[in-house]
Design a protein around this nucleic acid. Structure first.
Lengths: 150, 150
DNA sequence: CGTTTTTGTCTACAATTGTCAACGTAAAGG
DNA sequence: CCTTTACGTTGACAATTGTAGACAAAAACG
């Protein structure tokens, strides 16, 4: 267990990271205290998660007396962009646009973000294709129906 | 194992679903054949995944003689929207916009999708706040720095 | 200095996931 | 009708994840 090859963060680990990202580093005590305001996790559980995050090299420890100060090795934005991109990599190409539209419609965005998106989109529109191909099947065989159904 | 309470799809299971969604249902033989064009999975592995998907009620079986025809119980779009929303639910509110911008910039979108987004965004802009609050910490304590750093 | 508290490490255990092989039975072919 | 093939079901096993108790060493407190 925990034998070396760093994997991705699990959902619980992610929760811990959010706190540390927000505080830009924290001691275990602090993480435990803040975490327990949101989740009913035992101290032990949170300590395990911290340990695993260190194993996975998502956290770096800085010794401060006998305790550690935990500091993220990746920025929150980078991590978020990465998981989001990975998720999208496994979605049908044809439908990614729809998923984003769905996300957008449920989201409250700042003016600045909206304006940035608008700029990006009008740039993209200039070279945008009329339609996108599906990439769910390895070959193009049998894809006729799919194109229709997508 | 597989003791009843249907969970979400695992990544491997998702791959299988993509094929079935695209074909709008398929026999195991067909899934196995198509899957093996993409992944080096044994027949057995794919059969296990099909079984688990049935356990999780993501697939419904229709008996066709001795064999089964597997049919999705959820649409691909619904499933995609759901995982994407779930992912976003665990991201810092303040930064969701940035993540979408990042996704958008790597994506090839159809004209139609872009136009739909543009419409949506200009609607949203009308009531958009200047800034979004962070929701990473349970209380507002200690959040001052965060607001700045987000 | 001895006791209590902190805090990191180890161990544990059930559930989930990735991967398969083996088995039994129905179907298909000869 | 008998053999081969196809296909669903079981069992299996290692790795990951969720969850937490126990322990040890250092610190703080009195």
């Amino acid at each position: 267990m925990e034998k070396g090859n760093a994997t991705l963060m699990s959902p619980s680990e992610w929760e811990v990271m959010r706190i540390i990202w927000t505080k830009q580093g924290a001691s275990s005590t602090e993480v435990i205290r803040l975490m327990q305001l949101k989740r009913e996790w035992s101290e032990s559980t949170i300590k395990t998660l911290l340990g695993r995050l260190v194993d996975k090299k998502m956290l770096q420890t800085i010794k401060d007396g006998r305790r550690f100060f935990y500091r993220p090795t990746v920025t929150e934005s980078d991590a978020m962009n990465k998981v989001a991109s990975e998720l999208f990599d496994h979605l049908c190409n044809m439908k990614k646009g729809g998923v984003i539209i769905n996300l957008l419609s449920d989201l409250t965005l700042s003016r600045a973000d909206i304006e940035r998106m608008q700029l990006l989109l009008s740039e993209k529109l200039k070279t945008a294709p009329v339609s996108i191909n599906c990439d769910c099947l390895p070959t193009d065989e049998d894809c006729t129906m799919h194109k229709k159904s997508c």
